[in-house]
Design a binder for these strands. Structure first.
Lengths: 175, 175
DNA sequence: CCTAGCATGTAATACGTTACATGATTCA
DNA sequence: TGAATCATGTAACGTATTACATGCTAGG
């Protein structure tokens, strides 16, 4: 069991890979880990201070002009906590999918409505896949980080195909 | 935007499909919607009373012997709220996947550790797929509810394959 | 007799988003 | 000059799990 809070995990990881400020952590998560591990300002800033009190990060005020700015870096203890977490062998896997819940109860609905919804959902996943494809990260294609990007694209494609396939089979059955 | 709370959605749906008590709702979610829409007693019982106050469900005490028991049913208003929610066209899709987050930062780790983790993860998804397959619901294969069961099995299989494939390609590259 | 299951409920706690407040700088 | 962006932060609120408490009944 990890002693790191959920948001601490992504913070330490991002500090290890070059992020410096809370603001930057938020920007990066929003275009990378967001779809499987989000973070909001309301979690990030308090967590950074908790981590500093716990000795896992060190912060220094480093304003840009008159814009106040606090940069953080991992301490050796923080780096150790990060690596220790990375080596753990249990993990959270949570899915919250309202579309699936609707489908679960959709036998209560007329089939035209359901069919329209399935097509809409297929289109939505397809659009998300396109979006993910468009934010391809400029990093080594052999890296694990790049593999996660591929996962995102492929998972969205798989979902788009699944819903399109179901809509298709319902259409054929309806004929 | 739905006025139903997250737990209200699954409660109304299950009441519409035959569940009667809070206990039963919990049992059913645990073997059906759990992997994409969980519910706990701490949400279910208070929510049932809120829904009753709001007039969406009606509860009656119906003990079995001396075991206290309160059965609920949808009111016409509850049925209408359920159908209205089912017809909405926006939805929540949230994923929280710690394995993916680890992989995202795994360039910090040695490749043997990462490879072992990928294989473990593939095995885990494969096991979950087996488990899902084993709880195949005894319902019409043409129903939407059955389609959701298939989704679960197939999504877990897809994940198992994805992680196994990545492990495989890393192995080949390592040679 | 004891355990598992039926059945209901609450309190503590954790986690998360949203909206808001503040203020500087850059660029059109 | 005004909008977007950089940057930090808090308060209110919603949602969730966990652990605990209670007590009956059925079956081995």
């Amino acid at each position: 069991m990890s002693s790191l809070t959920p948001t601490a995990r992504v913070i330490l990881g991002l500090l290890a890979t070059g992020a410096e400020t809370g603001y930057e952590i938020k920007q990066i998560t929003d275009v990378s880990t967001r779809f499987f591990w989000g973070a909001s300002y309301g979690q990030i800033y308090p967590e950074l201070r908790r981590l500093e009190r716990a000795g896992l990060v060190r912060g220094r005020d480093q304003p840009r002009g008159n814009v106040r700015r606090r940069v953080y870096e991992l301490t050796p203890e923080g780096r150790a906590a990060l690596e220790s977490w990375l080596r753990e062998d249990d993990w959270v896997f949570d899915l919250r999918d309202e579309g699936l819940l609707r489908l679960f109860f959709s036998d209560l609905l007329d089939s035209e409505t359901v069919l329209a919804q399935l097509r809409e959902r297929a289109a939505w996943f397809s659009g998300v896949a396109d979006h993910f494809r468009s934010i391809r990260p400029p990093i080594d294609e052999g890296s694990h980080m790049f593999a996660v990007w591929r996962y995102g694209v492929e998972l969205m494609e798989w979902n788009a195909d699944w819903y399109a396939g179901l809509a298709q089979s319902l259409t054929e059955r309806g004929r």
